[in-house]
Computed example of a mutant assay.
Amino acid sequence: MNKGYERKELYPIENVLSKILSTSMKKKAEGSVDFDGDGINMASQRYKVFKEKGTVCSSCGLKGLYFAKERSGNARRYHFNLYGLNDEGEEVMMTKDHIVPKSLGGTNELSNYQTMCEPCNMAKGKQI
């Protein structure tokens, strides 16, 4: 389990991605979908990236395998994090990465996002 998160349950990828809502919703409450008694904001751009761009790291090819319903620290609401497993069987979080970084003029548009595992995303960030 990823440090810093309180985990509640695991979900198959299809179960989560099938509930994605339009990102045009302005309030989190409008994008809230019930997952076993917890309202999750399913209008997140991150979920849309995973649905449209896939759940495989664009750099190393690590495949996202499942979503975990988690919350960090003292957060009131749960959210989903996508995880894959590395060669040692350890969980690796999948992230939404800017293809062209915002610092270099990249936008927060779906066309400028890709799926990337956390280690590859961190390594990319150090190169820029």
Rank of each mutant, 00 (worst) to 15 (best):
M1D: 03
N2G: 05
N2R: 12
G4C: 05
Y5R: 10
E6W: 00
Y11N: 02
Y11L: 09
Y11Q: 03
I13W: 04
E14N: 07
E14I: 11
N15Q: 10
L17M: 06
S18P: 00
I20E: 11
L21K: 15
S24F: 05
S24I: 04
A29K: 15
E30D: 14
V33Q: 15
V33L: 11
D34W: 02
D38W: 08
D38M: 04
G39K: 15
N41H: 13
A43P: 02
S44A: 15
Y47Q: 10
Y47F: 15
K48D: 03
V49A: 07
V56R: 01
C57N: 04
S59E: 13
G61L: 01
G64H: 02
L65I: 07
A68Q: 03
K69Y: 13
E70T: 03
E70L: 06
R71F: 10
S72K: 14
S72E: 10
S72W: 06
S72P: 00
G73A: 09
R76Q: 14
R77M: 03
Y78F: 15
Y78P: 06
N81G: 08
Y83S: 04
G84E: 02
G84M: 02
G84C: 04
G84I: 05
N86A: 11
D87M: 12
E88H: 07
G89S: 07
G89C: 08
K96I: 02
K96S: 11
D97M: 00
H98Y: 09
I99Q: 10
I99L: 13
I99R: 08
I99S: 13
V100A: 08
K102A: 15
K102R: 15
T107F: 01
E109N: 08
N112L: 07
N112Q: 07
M116T: 11
E118G: 06
P119Q: 13
K126P: 00
Q127H: 05
I128Q: 08
I128V: 13
